[in-house]
């Protein structure tokens, strides 16, 4: 298999071939070139290639079934923080250190109860003061993971910010104001406390324990639900509209076109967390906007015909050059940079 001869391979062998899998899941220019050439030179292998592609996609889907993992991860993290803190205190006292938790369900529950009580009393104490909002922000080209007071986790994309109250009241909804783009993993609270994300355009996403991506840039808001259930409400022409979302739903809200709904693979819209971007039939103008939003450059096109060309691609992106090089090679472009401005023209 490491040196497998692709020319004689069956569909099964191709589907198990590391290079082939990499190409299907994380295509690069190099691998796309290799496999398209291979397909062109071996037209008789077309059925095997198609079958192998289908198998790889099927096999990669097994992740879809267990969504409880993210809630479990938040739960364990809360315990881990306690354990680390207790360990630091004992360490300072010079005492011996033991494992700090038991393995029975009972221990877990009582620890959860203690945390709940602690949080409740903290909330009581701090509500007496006027709590000031706290803002977390990212610079161009930066990503950041933020843990909220309720153990929900926010992955903030570049050039984005969230604002939360300093302390959350336990009986009022948890409320987050977002600008830019973020992926939320929200913890479920015992009392069913709501979690609300508000965008700068007035869209509200109302949540109970779930994972979703919110994009609030340019002219539209985009919300993609990865798992769980959310209710989206938005004000259009002074009228409030509400929609319940199912996992895999993409809802776009814009002043011009109102609400639109589409089914998508959520992983494509949340892959930016792992430095991958997905251009879903984007115009080059839209790709340019993404570079402007996330990296702070100004992107100019020479010729309006050029900026309307479309691209569909899934790319590994660490720096804006990774996107620009792909564009240059795909469309035969000349790309120049002067200070903060990138100019793109046809060769």
């Amino acid at each position: 298999m490491p040196d497998m001869n692709h020319e004689t391979a069956t569909a099964t062998e191709l589907a198990a071939d590391h290079d082939f899998i990499q190409w299907i899941k994380y295509p690069t220019q190099e691998s796309t070139l290799y496999w398209t050439q291979f397909a062109a030179q071996h037209p008789d292998k077309a059925p095997q290639l198609a079958e192998a592609r289908r198998l790889v996609l099927l096999l990669s889907q097994e992740q879809a079934e267990d969504r409880s993992c993210d809630e479990d991860a938040a739960l364990v993290w809360a315990h881990l923080q306690d354990a680390v803190r207790q360990d630091r205190e004992r360490g300072a006292a010079g005492g011996p250190v033991f494992a700090l938790w038991g393995y029975s369900r009972k221990t877990w529950l009582s620890a959860a109860a203690v945390i709940l009580v602690l949080l409740a009393s903290v909330a009581l104490l701090f509500n007496l003061n006027n709590s000031k909002p706290v803002t977390y922000a990212t610079a161009f080209g930066e990503k950041r993971i933020i843990q909220l007071p309720d153990n929900s986790v926010v992955v903030l994309n570049a050039n984005s910010s969230i604002t939360i109250p300093e302390k959350w009241n336990t009986d009022a909804p948890r409320s987050v104001q977002l600008q830019g783009e973020a992926f939320f993993t929200v913890t479920q609270q015992a009392n069913g406390q709501q979690f609300i994300v508000r965008t700068s355009k007035g869209t509200e996403i109302n949540v109970l324990g779930t994972e979703f991506n919110v994009y609030d840039r340019g002219l539209e808001d985009r919300v993609v639900l990865a798992s769980g259930k959310v209710r989206l409400s938005t004000i259009q022409n002074g009228e409030t509209r509400q929609m319940e979302m199912q996992p895999g739903d993409l809802i776009t809200v814009s002043a011009a076109n109102g609400l639109s709904h589409r089914r998508v693979d959520p992983s494509l819209y949340t892959s930016w967390q792992h430095n991958q971007v997905y251009f879903d039939n984007y115009t080059l103008r839209e790709v340019g906007s993404l570079i402007e939003e996330q990296y702070g450059y100004k992107v100019e096109f020479s010729g309006s015909e050029l900026s309307g060309q479309r691209i569909t691609a899934f790319l590994e992106v660490k720096r804006p050059e990774d996107i620009l090089n792909t564009l240059a090679e795909t469309f035969d472009l000349k790309i120049t940079q002067q200070e903060n401005t990138i100019n793109i023209s046809s060769l």
């Binding site: 991860a73 364990v76 881990l80 393995y103």
Partner: peptide, 26 residues
């Protein structure tokens, strides 16, 4: 936060005991 969800998912392939998986992760 980067690796825990994948480790939990992997744990599910090895044992059905979710509590054991959480304890092991911790």
């Amino acid at each position: 936060h980067h690796f825990a969800p994948m480790m939990l998912r992997y744990g599910n392939r090895i044992t059905p005991d979710k509590e054991l998986i959480r304890d092991c992760l911790q």
